[in-house]
Computed example of a mutant assay.
Amino acid sequence: MPLKHSCQLEEAMRIRPLGQPGDLGWVVQAHGELYAAEHKWDTSFEALVAKIVGDYAADHDDTKEAAWIAELDGERVGCVFCVRETDTTAKLRVLLVHPNARGHGAGNQLVDTCVKFAKSAGYQRIVLWTVDGLTSARKIYEAHGFELVEKTPQHSFGHDVIGQLWSRTL
Rank of each mutant, 00 (worst) to 15 (best):
W26H: 02
V131M: 11
I126Q: 03
K116W: 04
C7F: 13
R76T: 05
E147I: 08
G122C: 13
L110Q: 08
Q20D: 15
D132L: 11
D132S: 12
A37K: 14
V49C: 07
G103L: 14
L24Q: 01
T86W: 03
H104C: 10
M13P: 11
C7N: 13
L170C: 15
P2F: 10
P2V: 06
Q20W: 11
T152M: 13
R84I: 03
H159K: 14
C82V: 15
K151M: 06
D62R: 11
V161P: 05
V149N: 04
L110H: 10
G103Q: 13
V28G: 01
R14P: 04
Q154T: 12
H155V: 14
W166P: 00
L72Y: 02
D61L: 13
G133V: 11
I162A: 03
A36W: 13
S167T: 04
K64V: 03
V97F: 07
N100H: 05
G158E: 13
Y56S: 01
K4M: 09
M13R: 11
T169W: 07
L9V: 04
L110E: 11
S6D: 06
D59L: 07
F45T: 01
G145V: 08
R138V: 12
D61Y: 01
R125C: 03
R16Q: 06
T169H: 09
T152Q: 10
R93W: 00
S156H: 06
V83Q: 00
T130E: 05
C114D: 03
G105K: 09
E11M: 09
K151P: 01
R102F: 13
N108I: 02
L24S: 04
T88R: 12
E38M: 14
Q8I: 04
S136L: 05
L170P: 05
A67I: 03
K4G: 10
V27R: 10
D59H: 10
K64G: 03
H155G: 06
F81G: 00
F81A: 03
A50P: 00
H98Q: 15
E142D: 08
L9A: 14
G74R: 11
A143D: 09
E65W: 02
E65A: 08
T43M: 07
Q124H: 13
L3P: 10
D73Q: 08
G103R: 12
H104A: 08
H98S: 10
K116S: 15
W26K: 11
W129Y: 06
G163V: 05
A57E: 09
T86Y: 05
T63P: 01
C7V: 05
D87K: 14
Q154S: 05
C114M: 13
L96N: 08
E10H: 09
F81T: 00
A101C: 08
K40A: 11
E46D: 06
S44L: 04
G133N: 12
H39F: 12
I162V: 12
D59Q: 09
D73S: 12
K51W: 00
V97C: 10
A137G: 02
R93P: 01
R14M: 15
K116V: 08
R102E: 07
S6I: 10
L3V: 12
C7A: 14
H159P: 14
L24H: 00
V77Q: 12
Q154D: 13
C7P: 06
A50I: 00
R14G: 12
D61C: 10
S136K: 07
V27P: 04
